[in-house]
Structures are given as C-alpha cells and as structure tokens.
Design a protein around this nucleic acid. Structure first.
Lengths: 252, 252
DNA sequence: CCGCTTCTTGCACAAACATGCAAAACATGC
DNA sequence: GCATGTTTTGCATGTTTGTGCAAGAAGCGG
C-alpha cells in the first residue's frame, strides 16, 4: 500500500466519521502503529487533521489555515530562535507582534499557560494564537497586504495608536548596527514605527542572513533594540556593535 | 474514547442543557469521576465552561454553541451551500463576510478569478482569502473572540462604520420567519447589525438545523433577507414564509 | 459540631508517543 | 553493473500523557 493511498483513506474516514484511531488504522492497513502515527503527524502539519492523543480528528473548518512556514528556508533555525525568544515572556505582559515568518514561529512557540495580551497585524500570528485560551488577542485590522501577510495603512495605524505594549516583537527585514532596523515597504515601515513608538521595549529575532543588511525604509535606530535574539553562529563582531548600543544579546 | 471526544460531548451537553454533573458524565462515558473532573477543569481553564461544585455550567453567554458546530458531519453540506452561494457573486462587487463555519466554506469557494473587495472580521475567512490575488481584503480588527472566531467590540464596529458593501454574507445562529436572524452573543449581534446597516443586500446560507430556530439577540428582521441559500431538503413551508417577505430562495 | 460528598494532590501504571537506527525498496549517476 | 543517496518502514529506546486509586483538604447539609 502506498503512503499516499493511506493518506487518502484516512482523509475519507475523517470526512465520514470525524475521527480516527491510530491503532484501528494500523490493523486496517496492515502496517505498524508507528507508520500511522507518522501519517497523522504529516497530515496534521499540512492542516488536514488535528492530532489528538490516540488518533486524530477532522480539521475544524472553523480554524484558520495553519501558519505556513513552508517556503521559508530556515525553518529549523527560526524555531530555535522562537524558542529562545519566548523565554523573555512572563504572564501579565502585553505585546505587539508584527509579521514575518520568524514572528509566526514565535507566536507558535508561546507557551499555552501564559496569560498575555497580544496585538498583531499579522494574519498568521493571529491564527497561531487563536487557540491560546489565556491570550487576549487583538487583531489590528486594515487593508491586507498579501505580500507581507499583514494589515497596513491608515486603519492599522489608527488601531496601533490606541494601544501600548511592554514588548514589541519586530520582524526585521534588514538589521545593521549603524542604520538600525529597516524595511522594504513604506506602509509596512510606517506600521512598525507606530508599534515601536508605543512599546516599552523592542525584541528582534533574526537569522544570520539578515544581519548587517539594510533596506530602504528606516524603522528604528539600533539604540532602540532591547533584546536581540540570534543564532549561535552569528558573527561576534556584528553583535558587539549592537551590544555597545544597549542591546542584550540572547543566543538560540 | 478519545479525550477530545469527551470534551466535545460535554460541550454539546452544556449547550443543550446548560449544566452537567460530574458523576453522571462519568457513568455515561464509562470513566472515573476523576477523569471527568480533570476534563471539566481543563475546559474551565480554556473558558468553555464554569466549574461549580458537583459539575459545571455553561460559560457566560453561550460560548459552547459555535464550537459545537465543529462536528464534521455537516462539512459536505456546508460546502454544497457554499458553492451555491458564490454563484451570486460577480466581479466588481464589495462584500461583508462575517464568521461561522458556513461563511468560512463560502470564502473558500469563491472563484479565484473574481475581482472583489471583501471586508471580514473572521480570521478563518481572512485566511481563506489571503491568497486570492484579485481580492482586495480588508480585515476588520478588534478584540478577538475565540469562541466565535471573529473580532467584536467597539474597534470592530468603528471599522465597519467606515465601509459599505453590496452584499453581506450573514452567518446566522438562528433563523426564524417571524423573528428573523438572531445571534447568541450580544457583541456578535452588534457587529452583524452594523454590517447589515451598511450593506445593500443580505445573503444567508444555512443548514436545516438552523431553520426555524431563534437565539436571544436580534440581528435583522426577516424582510431584510434578499437571498436565502438552503439545502434541497429544507422544509417548504418554512421557506414559503421567507419568500413571502421578499427573500429569494436558492437551493444548494 | 458531625457525617457526607466533592474536590485536589500525589502516585503508579499502562498506553501512546517521539526518536534514533537499521534494513529494505527505490531512484540516480557514473 | 554498481555505487550512492533517498524514502519508507518496523523495531528498540526512553519519554510523555492519560487514567485510576488513595489520602487528605474543602465544601455542603444537618
């Protein structure tokens, strides 16, 4: 039996009954339970079902699409960064989180037992947080830019202006010790600036490829960065520049 | 029995009766009372019920209702409704789409070659549309209600007030020929009313189980419905009542 | 006050799980 | 053909999770 066939049969069964049991599928297909579990894991990752202890249940039509981290190259690395970044959090804080795959990974990595207030203009961040029961989630609406995956424009700016946060997780397009944080898009930069203005501290998590690069639109100076989360392999000389300007470096 | 199934059954029972008893659930499910208590504790933590001595009662304002619709049996039916509903669309229109599983299905069914402007307060609708290149998507932000899957509250109302639409796809909680469209939640109803006010026409797509039912909060009178999309098996007598008040019936 | 029920907590055990590894089946390139 | 790499699978491994039981605390009613 082909892997793909199995997946199709599982999908059929999910559509018909709404749930499947790992053990039952294993004996039905004549494969080990491990194989079934692998199947279910993959399908869950693709958003085709939701994994539960003992089997899987049909994906809720209700739920938003899973955060697509596919297509981004450094998934592993970003998840590592995310795990390091969320150690900065504690219950009771309020956050701004903007767009980008790294921030989506961070949103996913936020422990479910933290009580937080989070405002975001990113659809994938919002989706990732939509089932965190203890998170008060505020969606910053506006015109949706599908290149960025975030809302931008006057409405978004107005929404940001009404809020304040302890920390701002800034998705950085370019990060340079002299020019600071920069973005590729004017509207995007404007929203980021507004969030920065209304936050007590800025957190940036970046992969090495963004370090020592710059984009046209300036968002925040290097001195505004409070926490910088980087890979272990980040060039020490660059980090020293940021550290000199007040950033606290944290390695993933 | 899966843990998740138990939770779902408890939610259903809470929605139907408003309260559950730990002992009763234990014997019904064939598990120990400790397990049921654990379930109730978790669900209470997730805001799905309120724990009381001896069992649990429904969380404030009927939070269980939308979640219990996740039952996957109706997915096929909703997709059929969705395919029928999108035939009402043509390029150039602007739409409001609110929450609910049926509207999520409609959003998914919208053809990619239509040029539309769509405003929604539903995260799942926004996600579904986030890759429709020709759709100008406007996210109506605000406080996210995870039971509804939509944004509600003052910010959302303000965002709606700035817009107008040709059609409003109204996700209906209850639909009755005399009381019209009704909702379970006050904040939800308020947003729906605002969208209705700013739309030229209202479209409602419902499965049979919603027909001839009503919820506490009134959204719009029956005469406000322009298009009503229903299953082929919908009771003719009920449909006639709507038709008499100006609705155009369309079968899936 | 007391007796009763319900609840939480700690613990133990089994089932379900992820992970690493090796064998087999397959494709790819020289 | 043959070496090499990839994918799939099952198995052995520790680990995690769900469950029931027991003991003590807390709520409830007399």
């Amino acid at each position: 039996m082909l892997t793909d066939e199995r997946h199709q049969l599982i999908r059929d069964r999910l559509a018909a009954e709404g749930r499947v049991l790992a053990g039952e599928l294993a004996s039905r297909f004549g494969v080990s339970e491990d194989t079934v579990r692998r199947d279910l894991r993959e399908m869950a990752k693709a958003g085709q079902c939701r994994r539960v202890y003992g089997g899987a249940v049909a994906a809720a039509l209700f739920a938003a699409a899973p955060v697509s981290l596919r297509g981004s190259h450094a998934i592993e690395e970003k998840m590592r960064l995310a795990r390091a970044a969320v150690t900065l959090l504690s219950s009771g804080q309020s956050l701004f989180i903007d767009g980008g795959t790294t921030n989506a990974a961070i949103a996913r990595a936020i422990p479910r037992d933290l009580e937080l207030t989070i405002a975001t203009n990113s659809l994938s961040v919002a989706s990732a947080l939509s089932e965190h029961a203890l998170v008060e989630l505020i969606v910053l609406g506006g015109r949706f830019d599908r290149n960025l995956g975030t809302c931008v424009g006057a409405d978004t700016l107005a929404a940001v202006a009404q809020l304040g946060a302890d920390l701002f997780f800034l998705g950085s397009c370019g990060l340079d010790a002299s020019r600071g944080v920069t973005a590729f898009d004017s509207a995007e930069a404007e929203v980021k600036r507004a969030m920065a203005r209304n936050s007590a501290g800025i957190v940036i998590a970046v992969t090495n490829d963004k370090l020592a690069t710059a984009a046209p639109y300036r968002v925040a100076g290097p001195e505004a960065i409070r926490h910088l989360v980087v890979e272990k392999t980040a060039p020490a000389v660059t980090l020293a520049d940021f550290e000199r300007q007040g950033a606290e470096i944290r390695f993933a």
